[in-house]
Simulated scan of single mutants.
Amino acid sequence: MQTEALVPLALPRGQKLRCELCLAPATVRCGGCAVTYYCDVEHQNADWASAHEKICPLLIPLRTAPPFYNSEKERKHGREQKISREKFLAELTQTIAQNFLLEGKHESAIPAALHSLKFSISVHGSDSVELVPAFLILAEASLGLGHLPQGEEYLSQAHWIILKNPQSSSATQSKLHRNLGLLYAAKGNFEESLRHLANDIYYASCAFGTNSVAVSGGYFHMANVFFRQNRMDVADSLYSEVVDIWHQHFCHLIDLRYQTLMTPAEINMLSEETESPEETLDEKEKAEATQMLSAILDLREQSARPQRAKIAKAVQAQAMLHYLTRDLQKAHECVTKVRQLMKQLPKHEPDRPFRRLIKLMQGRPVYGK
């Protein structure tokens, strides 16, 4: 990374430059693009590690003086190019920020999300519903870092925009209410948290269907609230609902793979290139399924009265998840564990998805990630 310290910066009278991240007076400039400024090297390094390294040269045409245009047609084309670049950067930095969230890197997500917010404002205006995703990422990252007041401020901004835009999608409203539910849970206001999580489940069901994995997060976080209230029966029921949703989803994906296999030769031909996007888990689903199933399984196994049938179902869901994410070694470990648990259950035979999973695994070598 190139940096150029400018203390003080040589600026025309009356011109002030602000930090890209915090808007404090700038003292440092990026030596790569020379059009991005920071209050100190710490903020410059944070931005570089988050998004700036990927967008550094792309900022130059946006932040330098435009060329002289000879006609209105050229000026219009120049404006359209600028908007197109800003839209691309808004989407790119939003994706970068979302990926950091999936990895649990909340601090790294914030600079990228701030970039996305700025570009979205430039393209769509300060009251547009297109700003909501960036605000929600900023809120989720802030809550993940324990910065509740900042997270609450971002959620207030998102909520206000949605109230002014009644056409906001059910999917967007689901994400808003989930984050509000997490905020109030962190503040200890369980009643308000449950209200928002119930809204999350409602809007996610409207957008994706009642049995969609998109609904599972609302049930999972609601179960966590009941668990903290020591309302164990309700929490256990909701955790079971989460496992059922993921188990059903994985069974569907396993069935799709199994139906394509007619002979052992075709099993051996199964490869990453032959799978269609509809048959795979996206990164968000992988991260959420891993988090939820691992947490539920830990609670099940640590219970004073472990219920082996429920543990077996959660482990079977994990086995399918590992198979679908191509971690065959862990999938085999889970299959072995399920078989051991089944031996302790009266009259419990492997179900069809489990038998199909085993057959699929027999056609592929064992390997780790």
Rank of each mutant, 00 (worst) to 15 (best):
A10H: 15
R13H: 05
L17Y: 05
L17I: 05
L17K: 14
P25C: 04
T27S: 12
V28D: 00
V28W: 10
G31L: 05
C33E: 11
A34F: 02
V35G: 02
T36R: 14
T36G: 06
Y38W: 03
D40C: 15
V41R: 15
E42G: 14
W48F: 13
A51T: 07
E53C: 02
I55A: 06
L58R: 15
P61V: 05
L62E: 09
R63D: 03
P66I: 01
P66D: 02
N70E: 12
N70Q: 13
S71P: 07
S71D: 04
K76V: 04
H77D: 07
I83V: 03
I83W: 03
R85V: 00
E86S: 08
E86W: 09
F88N: 13
F88P: 00
F88R: 15
A90G: 00
E91I: 13
L92G: 00
I96Y: 05
A97L: 08
Q98L: 03
N99Q: 08
F100L: 02
L102D: 02
L102S: 04
E103Y: 05
G104W: 07
H106S: 01
A112T: 09
S116M: 07
L117F: 04
V123M: 11
V123P: 02
S126W: 08
D127V: 05
D127W: 10
E130Q: 15
I137V: 14
L138V: 04
S142W: 01
L145N: 10
G146K: 10
P149L: 10
G151V: 00
E153A: 13
A158S: 13
W160I: 03
I161F: 06
L163H: 09
L163R: 10
K164L: 10
Q167N: 12
S169W: 11
S169F: 09
S174W: 04
L176W: 08
L182I: 03
L182W: 02
A185E: 14
A185K: 15
K187D: 03
G188L: 14
N189Q: 14
E192N: 13
A198I: 05
A207M: 08
F208P: 04
G209C: 07
S212P: 06
H221V: 01
N224M: 10
F227Y: 11
R228K: 11
Q229I: 01
M232R: 15
D236Y: 05
S240E: 08
V242R: 08
W246C: 02
D255L: 04
T260D: 07
A265W: 03
A265P: 00
M269E: 14
S271C: 10
S271A: 11
E272Y: 09
E278W: 08
L281V: 03
D282R: 10
D282G: 13
K286I: 06
T290D: 07
A295W: 01
L297C: 12
D298P: 06
E301A: 13
Q302H: 15
A304V: 09
A304T: 14
P306W: 01
K313S: 03
K313P: 01
K313L: 05
V315L: 01
Q318E: 12
M320F: 03
T325Q: 09
L328N: 06
Q329N: 07
H332Y: 14
E333F: 09
V335C: 13
R339W: 06
R339E: 11
Q344C: 12
K347G: 10
P350M: 06
D351N: 14
R352D: 12
R352N: 11
P353R: 02
P353F: 01
F354Y: 04
R356C: 04
L357S: 11
K359H: 09
L360A: 04
G363I: 00
V366C: 13
